[in-house]
Design a protein around this nucleic acid. Sequence first.
DNA 1: CCTCCACCGGAACGTGAGGAGT
DNA 2: ACTCCTCACGTTCCGGTGGAGG
Length: 434
Amino acid sequence: MKGVFEELLKSEQIFKNRDVLRPAYTPEDLPHRKEQIENIATILVAALRGETPSNLLIYGKTGTGKTAVVKYVGKELEEAAERQGTACAVLYLNCEVIDTQYRVLAHLARPFNREIPMTGWPTDQVYTEFKEAIDDRERAVIIILDEVDKLIKKGDEVLYSLSRINSELNNAKVSIIGISNDLKFIEFLDPRVRSSLGEEENVFPPYNADQLKDILEQRAAMGFKEGTLGEGVIPLCAAFAAQEHGDARRALDLMRVSGEIAERHRESRVTETHVREAQDRIEMDRIAEVVRTLPTQSKLILYSTILLDGTVGGNDLTTGEVYNMYRRLCRSIDMTPLTQRRVTDLLSELDMLGIINAKVVSRGRFGRTREISLSVPVESTTSVLMEDYRLNTLTAHQAYQAYPKVGTEHYKPIPPQSRLPTGANAILNQFGKN
DNA sequence: CCTCCACCGGAACGTGAGGAGT
DNA sequence: ACTCCTCACGTTCCGGTGGAGG
């Protein structure tokens, strides 16, 4: 077993630089974002003229280049300011990671050499500290808040104080750039913050397939060794990603994973087959993540459909069958079952997540119901479900053993005293309603 | 054309957790 | 520490319904 690593190193022939294919990398040149770059730059030049730039809100779905563009413009601005001899600081922070008011302020103050403990101070003291730190001389401060929507949920007080900070400063000028992928985010904002924060707005449209192709080509040139990419690889990656609302991040992931798969197969060239495999794997990972984070009841419902899948002679399942099975499962692991009403809601939720297919159909004489079928692979999904300790005790084998007649028996709602048996309403209708 | 199945799905209500206000 | 409010999750109740079969 000597030389495992040497061997692996030798087989690394596909990537030139894997890191440029990761979403975190900001390239020198951003294709198809010229307009946005100019737009933002026009707003920010004010900083170089000693004025206060307008605050700016940027919207766009994931992978539309928001962060990359803003970071890029920020860097350019800093460089231009340095050449010109103006004091200008661009502070970037991601509100998903830094998610409390205290930490936001502490993070902002740190680059100005202020020692602020990780915790312990009152928040307004940190705020004062930050204010004093930047106000020591004339300077422009651009604060970039990535994923601001995450911050709102924890209270928008910071945003409020930051948006009015200029009135408390003598020398420095602060402007805020907020980045959000939630278009409706502004509606949840305090009106006072809304007007000042959204002085300017900029929406980033998704990329189309052609634009994605350009982006991929640019990165591929840097990331892959020459001649390792097959003909159709880039167009295919672009096409797949364009289907998913033009997400460049997705496109890059796809391309990188394709390369990794090719590498694992010890092949020297990436082909379309690898791309398809990569697409499947990414999709699988997504499903696994969704399934894993499902509430237990939904997991049980999903497991019921898995167990019943294929047992009813190729027909799709009905709500009643799934519910019946679900109750059995509940009983055997000692959980109180939800009502059928609730389960129908959870079923449509699973449908929305793309885990099952549930379509309302009428079977005439045989009533109206949902036709349910799985749209995920049985085996891998089952193994994800089994990670849940509450389901762990149930194996398919046990379930079949315990309930051999699965799927053949129909659940009849047990009527509470006042409840009329099914079909009774129709009878009553004959007599009129009063 | 009418019936009647086996559910659908809206509405109102109950409950407990968690956050804001005081 | 306290109340009050909101919100997510569930239940109860019940009218509604597409279409196969009579």
